[in-house]
Design a protein around this nucleic acid. Structure first.
Lengths: 348, 348
DNA sequence: TTGTACGCGTTATCAC
DNA sequence: GTGATAACGCGTACAA
């Protein structure tokens, strides 16, 4: 595809017997141009259907009004919402968003980082892939003078701006709620512990148990149960134990919680009377399962907005190197039928 | 933020007492460079942490390895999936994706188009906003020598590449299925008729009725019922009629179907025995409602891939102006409990 | 095989 | 207020 010739500021200048620099000034409202010529320039620019070439402009100006985003998957609810929030704010500021997905692969994440560096984006916003290995690519971002904001899944060891959910607190709240509902043996479905978010959720679980003098039972903690299928399998094992749990906290996602619910239903176990179930993420479907599922809302859209605002307000505006700041958003426990056994009749 | 100086091909050239053009050739594998110097160049490029400046490269080459995408909302399941599919293919080809959302606003859509034109993207992939007014902005894309692919919601009058779902056929299948299940008075929840997709779905509905010699009853067709709330309201009116429908085809979305289901449940109407419900889009939750909801799967991820492949295989490669082609993807009716009243016991 | 010279479209810095 | 010129970083025809 050969791109046909577009009209440039030279074309406009030539037509008006002016100089290109005057045209540039007029179009950018910069420097001095007389009102008359300015109007003339704007008029003929419209006539010739002039469109600025951002490539040239950005090259000359040495920066790019573009922000890169890297997420594991763009069609995962949480990330899609964060991106929606990001786009909302960046659009207002006249910035563009380049979106990449790592597909949970570290190797691909590294490639994404490199293309974004090549693109001279002014900031990279990232949530790392599940098989996070090392952070040389992230350091590379900083070495190239590009701002870096990590969110949700982050590398704790690297000092950058971070926007996080308070996973530990949210998990503690969830488990505390289960305890308050009288559940005695509360199981945990964990995600990969190399990811901060799953580690923190486990900590919250442990912390709640300790605070209420509940025993910590390793046989009730299942590793890597972070898909619907994996958690269904783990649930079967749990519920077939001699002393099965009477509640399961699917800390990885609502899909895991759904797996738990399906297994329980198939086994004829009553939820929430015989088994309490709590998920994580507040996916749309948790509201309409029967029973509806208690879960944690992460305010994903507003998280995206927070991230973007952090960039525009604290990072970009700051001419000195700003001190990497950590913003923590407190998620909200949404209590629904799947854990409300005191008011079992009340189906929400 | 001042971007610190990055290493350029000049820096590499200077260090090796070479010329920048040799460095360029070596890095791009273009032209002739001796193996020795090439290795030397690649080595020092790595040492100096050289990163290409895509801005400069693209400016020089006159084209941009970037594709722009405009959708109403990035966090709507269907669009998120299409984007995921798009990204999958474009990533393989070394292309970047710039994502914009129109927020269902025509004015904003126009602005998005303009920034993408400024960015010199090589292609714009768009699904138009609900308040589609006119197509001057789309024509503008073409006038600027940028390829244009419309998908799903398109402007029929404009001759461009299009990737569509066969909405009419899918709707006809759905309604035919309802008829086969013995439903007699089948209502339709419509979306805004200025959008092709909703118009086509209505046509499919009408066509199925005609083919089976069913009467077409205007009182059973509700306009603009395209959110959960709107369709719940429409459903209430329908079910309170003297002769209420015994089936409702929520042609706008599964969320509408969910609204129908909730209203029916609250009114004590049995689904599917007394009321059949069919949605559209195959949202994840349709599988787990009780009863599960019959719906139409649009193959959204693979639609994204199809669009991208269309660009790379047919449009980009073609040096002559390719003739705008319309690709139609046949959606698939997914039959679930909400319309299966012959085998009512079988809860899927 | 390597070097020279120029231009992509824009903006910044001069001078007038 | 306007014009001339250089430079952003790169790729490419051409010459050596």
């Amino acid at each position: 595809m050969k791109t046909p010739k577009r009209t440039t500021i030279y074309d406009i200048a030539k037509k008006l017997n002016l100089n290109a620099s005057s045209v540039s000034r007029a179009l950018n409202n910069s420097g001095n141009v007389s009102e008359v010529t300015k109007k003339l320039i704007l008029k003929t620019a419209k006539e010739l259907n002039y469109k600025q070439n951002s490539l040239a402009s950005n090259l000359r100006k040495g920066h790019n009004q573009t922000i890169g985003v890297i997420v594991p998957r763009v069609n995962q609810n949480f990330f899609a919402n964060v991106i929606a929030g990001l786009e909302e704010v960046t659009y207002q500021k006249g910035y563009n968003l380049i979106i990449c997905q790592s597909n949970e692969s570290h190797a691909r994440e590294v490639k994404c980082v490199n293309t974004l560096i090549n693109q001279h984006v002014s900031c990279i916003i990232i949530s790392v892939s599940a098989d996070f290995e090392d952070d040389t690519h992230l350091r590379n971002i900083q070495e190239n003078g590009i701002q870096l904001i990590q969110f949700d899944r982050v590398d704790d060891n690297l000092e950058t701006f971070k926007v996080l959910n308070d996973n530990k607190q949210a998990s503690e709240d969830a488990v505390t709620h289960l305890i308050a509902q009288g559940y005695q043996r509360i199981a945990l479905l964990e995600g990969p512990q190399n990811l901060n978010i799953f580690k923190e959720r486990k900590e919250g679980y442990l912390s709640a148990l300790r605070k209420h003098n509940y025993p910590i039972l390793p046989e009730l903690m299942k590793e890597n149960a972070w898909t619907k299928e994996l958690s269904a399998a783990a649930t079967k094992k749990l519920l077939n134990m001699a002393h099965p749990p009477d509640a399961i906290f699917a800390s990885t996602s609502d899909f895991s919680a759904l797996g738990v619910l399906e297994v329980a239903t198939n086994m004829g176990i009553k939820v929430p009377a015989e088994l309490g179930i709590c998920g994580y993420s507040n996916e749309a479907f948790t509201e309409i399962t029967s029973p509806s599922i208690t879960t944690v809302d992460q305010y994903s859209v507003s998280m995206g907005k927070t991230i973007a605002n952090l960039y525009f307000q604290e990072i970009k505006s700051d001419n000195k190197d700003a001190i990497p700041k950590i913003v923590s958003i407190k998620p909200k426990l949404i209590i629904r039928s799947s854990t409300l056994r005191n008011k079992d009749e009340q189906r929400i």
